[in-house]
Design a protein around this nucleic acid. Structure first.
Ligand SMILES: Nc1ncnc2c1ncn2[C@@H]1O[C@H](COP(=O)(O)O)[C@@H](O)[C@H]1O
Length: 617
DNA sequence: TCAGAATGCTCC
DNA sequence: ATTCTGT
DNA sequence: ACAGAATGAGCATTCTGA
C-alpha cells in the first residue's frame, strides 16, 4: 500500500508538482489542516439529496439502496452505471475535485459566520480580538476567495456536489461520494499517506516546499501537534508487567477535554483540542488566566477570582502545555462530571457569559522558551513543567501524580483517583521510552480504568429489541442494536443504549442470523422508546447480552428507569460495549430498571462524596 | 415565527 | 470513546 | 504493534413544518 502510494506521489512530484498539495489532501481525505476550521459540512442526508438529483433518482430509492448496499458510494456507482451517457463529460482532475471540496467547505463558513460576527477590524485590546479572531480571519479569507452569490449556501454546496457527480465516470462516483463522507474504506488513511509522502520526498529533494505541515519535532509554537495517546490495560499487574524494571509514574485521569495550550512570545494564546481543532474561542477564561493583562484589561473583574490570576511564572516566555480542562465548581471546590463540561457553548464564548467554569490540569509540556521538549524524557519535561508554572487552586493545577511500583499502592491510588471524580489512572514511564510521541507513534502511555477490569465496573444484562443495518464492512449484518432493560413493575422494556462494539465479526454474524428470526413488523406495545430512535428492524425479546459501560448518564433519548430517578428522563450508558451473550438468561431476567436506578444513584453518591483535589508531586 | 426534528460534529 | 482485524 | 474501520452518547446549530 505504502509503496504504491509513494510511487504515485513520486510521479506527481516529477510530472505535475503543482498538483501535489491537492493530491496529498485528497489521498489523506482532508481539505485543510484541522486547526483552520475548514469543514465540508456534508452529511449523509445532503449527500443523498445531491445524489438523487444528480442522477435523476428518487430520494427514497437512494435511501433504500443505501441501506441495502451499506455504502452510499456504491449507490452512486450503481446509479451512474445504469445511466445512459448522452455525451462524455469533461474528465475530472485532481485539481478540480479538490477545488470543489474547498468551495463546499467555504460555503459552510460563509453561511455560519457571516452575519453572526461583528465585522470590525479588531484591535488587540478588545476582547473580541480573542473571541472572534478565528472567524474574522476566516471571513477575510472568504471575502478574498469566495465571490459567489445568489442561492443559499446549502444549495450551492449541493450544486458543487452535483457537478462532481455528473462529471464522474466509472469508479469516480464511488470514491467522490466516499471522500465526501470521509469514509474511504480502502484500508489506507492519513498515517499511511504521511509515511508514503515522507518516502516520496526523500527520493526527490527537488520538491520545493513540503506541502503538508507534517508533525516534525521542530514544531512551531502556535501550530498544534498530535497528542500522545494511551493504551488500555485491564489490571495493575499488566502495568507492572509492561513497565517491568522501568521507573514510571501514575497520574489521575481527569474526565474533561484535552487542551494543548500554546503561548507565544507576543503574549497570544491558542488552545487546541485533542483533534487539533481550534478551541481558543471556547475557553476565553483559560486564555485570560494566562494573558489577561495583555488583551483585556477592561474586562478584568476583580470579583471573578478565576480569571484574575496568572499561572505562568515570568520566566516562561513561550510554551506548549498538554492539559485536561475539567468542569469545576469553584464554590464547592469540586470537579464536575464530563456531562457538565459538555454543555459549555463552543463558539464565540465571552468571559461574562460563561456558565460552566473550569479548572485546567496540566500533565505535560512540549516546548518552552524556544526549546522543543518532545525528545526529552518525561522526567525532564515534568521538571520544566513544575519549575515554570505555579498552581492556582481551582484554576490551574498539576495532574496529581505518584511514583511507585507497588501493586497495593497503585490500587490505592486508583481508588483515590476515582474518589476524586477521575476516570482512572494514566501510567507513564519516566526515563525510558518516555519521549513525547505525537499521535503518529505507538502508545507508550497506559490507561487504567475500573471498567476495564474484569468483574469490576458497571456491567448490565440487556435485551436487544431492535437493530440497524450495518454499513461498510458490516454490510449484510446488523451494525448496531438497540438495547433495553426490563421494568418489572410495568412489565415493559425500556431502551438504555445502542451498541455496536465488542462483537467479533463471527459473533456479529451469529447474532444477526439468530435475531433475524425474531424480527417483528412493529414494536411491541410494551417497548418504551423515544420515537426519534428509528431502527431498521424490531425484534421480539429473545436474548440477553452482558454489556459493560464506563458510566451511567441522564439521557435525552433513552428511557431506562424513567420515572424512578427523574420523572421524564431515562438513563443511558457511556461507552457501552458487548462483553458476551448470556445464554443462561431469559429476557425477563435482564437487569431491571430498579437496578439501573440503583447503579445511577450509587455513582452519583460517589461523585457527591468526592474529596477535593490535593496534589502530591 | 418558533419549537421540535434533523443534522453535523465533537468529545469523553 | 471501545473493540476487533488485517498487515 | 499499529493503522484502520466498525460502532457509542450527547452537545450546539441549522432546518423545517405547523
Ligand atoms: N494525567 C493525564 N495524562 C494524560 N492524559 C490525560 C490525563 N488526564 C486525563 N487525560 C485524558 O485522557 C485521554 C486519553 O484517554 P482515552 O481518550 O481514554 O484514550 C487524553 O486525551 C486526555 O484528554
Amino acid at each position: 500500500m505504502t509503496e504504491i502510494l509513494c510511487n504515485a506521489f513520486r510521479t506527481v512530484i516529477a510530472t505535475t508538482p503543482g498538483n501535489l498539495l491537492a493530491t496529498v489532501y485528497l489521498t489523506a481525505n482532508k481539505i485543510a489542516p484541522p486547526h483552520e476550521g475548514l469543514e465540508l459540512g456534508i452529511g449523509e442526508a445532503s449527500l443523498v439529496k445531491a445524489l438523487a438529483e444528480a442522477y435523476g433518482r428518487k430520494e427514497e430509492h437512494v435511501k433504500k439502496q443505501n441501506s441495502e448496499l451499506g455504502d452510499l458510494g456504491l449507490v452512486a456507482k450503481a446509479s451512474r452505471s445504469t445511466q445512459r451517457l448522452m455525451f462524455q463529460p469533461k474528465p475530472l482532475t485532481i485539481d478540480k475535485v479538490f477545488s470543489a471540496f474547498l468551495a463546499i467547505a467555504k460555503q459552510l463558513l460563509e453561511s455560519h459566520s457571516f452575519d453572526k460576527y461583528p465585522f470590525t477590524i479588531p484591535n488587540s485590546k478588545d476582547v473580541s480580538f480573542i473571541v472572534f479572531k478565528r472567524p474574522i480571519m476566516v471571513m477575510a479569507f472568504d471575502l478574498l476567495w469566495c465571490k459567489e452569490s445568489g442561492a443559499n449556501s446549502h444549495d450551492k454546496k449541493k450544486n458543487h456536489i452535483k457537478g462532481l457527480l455528473v462529471a464522474a465516470t466509472e469508479c469516480e462516483p464511488l470514491y467522490i461520494t466516499r471522500l465526501l463522507q470521509s469514509k474511504m474504506r480502502i484500508g489506507l488513511a492519513e498515517k499511511t499517506v504521511l509515511v508514503a509522502l515522507g518516502q516520496a520526498a526523500a527520493y526527490s529533494e527537488t520538491c520545493p516546499n513540503p506541502p503538508l505541515q507534517t508533525q516534525s519535532p521542530l514544531e512551531e509554537v502556535g501550530v498544534p501537534i498530535g497528542p500522545m495517546l494511551a493504551k488500555p490495560t485491564k489490571a495493575v499487574s499488566e502495568i507492572i508487567d509492561k513497565f517491568q524494571g522501568m521507573e514510571f509514574t501514575c497520574e489521575y485521569k481527569y474526565d474533561g477535554e484535552r487542551a494543548q495550550i500554546h503561548y507565544m512570545e507576543d503574549g497570544s494564546v491558542e488552545i487546541y483540542s485533542r483533534n487539533a481543532e481550534w478551541n481558543t474561542g471556547k475557553y476565553p477564561d483559560v486564555v485570560s488566566s494566562i494573558s489577561r493583562e495583555k488583551f483585556i484589561p477592561a474586562i478584568c473583574k476583580p470579583t471573578n477570582s478565576s480569571s484574575a490570576v496568572l499561572f505562568k511564572k515570568d520566566t516562561a516566555k513561550s510554551f506548549v502545555l498538554d492539559c485536561e480542562i475539567v468542569a469545576y465548581d469553584h464554590e464547592k471546590q469540586k470537579i464536575l462530571p464530563f456531562q457538565v463540561l459538555s454543555t459549555r457553548a463552543r463558539k464565540g464564548v465571552i468571559l461574562s457569559g460563561i456558565k460552566v467554569t473550569v479548572c485546567t490540569f496540566a500533565f505535560d509540556i512540549l516546548y518552552i522558551n524556544g526549546q522543543p521538549l518532545l525528545q526529552e524524557q518525561l522526567k525532564v519535561r515534568r521538571q520544566h513543567l513544575y519549575s515554570s508554572f505555579e498552581e492556582v487552586p481551582g484554576v490551574f493545577q498539576f495532574a496529581t501524580a505518584t511514583i511507585t511500583n507497588d501493586v497495593e499502592e497503585i490500587q490505592k491510588f486508583l481508588e483515590a483517583a476515582v474518589n476524586s471524580s477521575c476516570e482512572g489512572l494514566i501510567i507513564k514511564t519516566l526515563d525510558k521510552d518516555a519521549t513525547y510521541e505525537p499521535s503518529k507513534r505507538s502508545n507508550n502511555w497506559l490507561k487504567l480504568k475500573k471498567d476495564y477490569m474484569e468483574s469490576i465496573g458497571d456491567s448490565l444484562d440487556l435485551v436487544p429489541i431492535a437493530a440497524f443495518h450495518g454499513r461498510g464492512k458490516r454490510t449484510g449484518v446488523y451494525g448496531s442494536f438497540l438495547l433495553a432493560c426490563y421494568d418489572e413493575q410495568n412489565e415493559e422494556y425500556q431502551t438504555i443504549c445502542n451498541i455496536g462494539t465488542g462483537f467479533s465479526e463471527s459473533q456479529l454474524e451469529e447474532r444477526s442470523a439468530s435475531l433475524r428470526n425474531k424480527v417483528i413488523p412493529t414494536p411491541k406495545p410494551y417497548y418504551r422508546y423515544a420515537d426519534t430512535v428509528n431502527p431498521d428492524v424490531w425484534f421480539e425479546p429473545a436474548e440477553v447480552w452482558e454489556v459493560k459501560a464506563a458510566d451511567l448518564s441522564i439521557s435525552p433519548v433513552h428511557r431506562a428507569a424513567s420515572g424512578i430517578v427523574y420523572p421524564n428522563k431515562g438513563i443511558s450508558l457511556r461507552f457501552p460495549r458487548l462483553v458476551h451473550v448470556r445464554d443462561d438468561k431469559s429476557p425477563e431476567q435482564a437487569t431491571t430498571s430498579d437496578q439501573v436506578a440503583d447503579m445511577y444513584r450509587a455513582q452519583k453518591i460517589n461523585h457527591a462524596n468526592n474529596h477535593e483535589e490535593e496534589d502530591d508531586d
